[in-house]
Amino acid sequence: MARITATIRPLHDDGSVCAHKVTSTGKPADADSGCTGRTQYGAACSADTWTFTSSTKAEVAYVRDRHLRQHAAPRAGGTQQQ
């Protein structure tokens, strides 16, 4: 079984990934880079269609971890290993 992941990525206002250097406030470190700045963070699950975005990385991490734990939970009616 493949490992299920949901990597947190910094995003621009239009939802594209921000790979540029930014200041602690999310503004572009280099004004000539063409970067509009980081406005949010997002994560998407590799196993299903779940996605989540927020202005804070901590909230995305919390919700992502909660979602990933659901994949690890035993299924109803299934057997549990002890």
Score class of each variant (00 low, 15 high):
residue 27 K to Y: 13
residue 56 T to G: 09
residue 54 S to M: 09
residue 37 G to V: 01
residue 77 G to L: 00
residue 69 R to I: 04
residue 66 R to N: 14
residue 10 P to W: 02
residue 12 H to L: 14
residue 54 S to G: 04
residue 68 L to Q: 02
residue 44 A to V: 07
residue 8 I to C: 12
residue 68 L to S: 02
residue 37 G to Q: 02
residue 51 T to E: 08
residue 10 P to H: 01
residue 12 H to N: 12
residue 10 P to N: 06
residue 1 M to K: 06
residue 66 R to I: 11
residue 74 P to Y: 05
residue 33 S to M: 04
residue 57 K to I: 06
residue 63 V to G: 01
residue 82 Q to K: 10
residue 76 A to P: 12
residue 52 F to T: 02
residue 82 Q to Y: 05
residue 14 D to V: 09
residue 31 A to S: 15
residue 41 Y to V: 04
residue 63 V to N: 09
residue 78 G to M: 07
residue 76 A to Q: 05
residue 15 G to F: 06
residue 72 A to K: 08
residue 26 G to T: 02
residue 57 K to V: 07
residue 9 R to C: 09
residue 49 T to N: 13
residue 11 L to F: 04
residue 77 G to S: 03
residue 32 D to G: 04
residue 56 T to R: 14
residue 13 D to Y: 00
residue 24 S to A: 14
residue 14 D to C: 07
residue 33 S to H: 03
residue 46 S to T: 14
residue 9 R to I: 13
residue 10 P to A: 09
residue 6 A to H: 03
residue 45 C to T: 02
residue 61 A to G: 05
residue 19 A to L: 13
residue 61 A to S: 13
residue 77 G to V: 02
residue 31 A to R: 11
residue 60 V to E: 03
residue 70 Q to T: 14
residue 59 E to Y: 10
residue 81 Q to A: 15
residue 11 L to C: 05
residue 21 K to C: 11
residue 41 Y to H: 08
residue 73 A to Q: 13
residue 13 D to K: 08
residue 15 G to M: 07
residue 43 A to L: 06
residue 76 A to W: 05
residue 37 G to D: 04
residue 66 R to P: 08
residue 50 W to Y: 03
residue 77 G to I: 03
residue 24 S to I: 08
residue 15 G to I: 06
residue 63 V to I: 15
residue 33 S to E: 01
residue 64 R to Y: 04
residue 12 H to Y: 14
residue 16 S to N: 13
residue 64 R to M: 05
residue 13 D to M: 05
residue 40 Q to I: 05
residue 25 T to L: 13
residue 35 C to P: 01
residue 75 R to K: 14
residue 76 A to L: 08
residue 74 P to E: 09
residue 54 S to P: 06
residue 51 T to L: 00
residue 64 R to P: 00
residue 3 R to I: 06
residue 39 T to S: 12
residue 45 C to G: 01
residue 64 R to Q: 04
residue 64 R to V: 03
residue 40 Q to W: 11
residue 16 S to R: 10
residue 45 C to R: 01
residue 16 S to H: 12
residue 80 Q to A: 10
residue 22 V to N: 14
residue 1 M to Y: 00
residue 72 A to E: 13
residue 19 A to C: 07
residue 3 R to P: 13
residue 68 L to V: 01
residue 16 S to T: 15
residue 12 H to A: 09
residue 2 A to E: 10
residue 45 C to E: 08
residue 18 C to P: 00
residue 9 R to A: 08
residue 34 G to R: 01
residue 62 Y to E: 15
residue 21 K to F: 12
residue 82 Q to H: 08
residue 59 E to R: 13
residue 56 T to H: 13
residue 35 C to V: 03
residue 52 F to G: 01
residue 70 Q to M: 14
residue 23 T to W: 15
residue 46 S to N: 05
residue 44 A to E: 11
residue 76 A to V: 06
residue 4 I to W: 00
residue 45 C to W: 03
residue 64 R to C: 00
residue 46 S to W: 10
residue 38 R to V: 15
residue 13 D to T: 11
residue 66 R to Y: 12
residue 50 W to D: 00
residue 7 T to Q: 13
residue 69 R to W: 04
residue 50 W to Q: 02
residue 5 T to G: 00
residue 39 T to Q: 05
residue 10 P to G: 03
residue 43 A to R: 09
residue 1 M to S: 12
residue 32 D to Y: 04
residue 38 R to L: 07
residue 45 C to S: 01
residue 56 T to S: 15
residue 69 R to N: 11
residue 57 K to M: 11
residue 71 H to V: 05
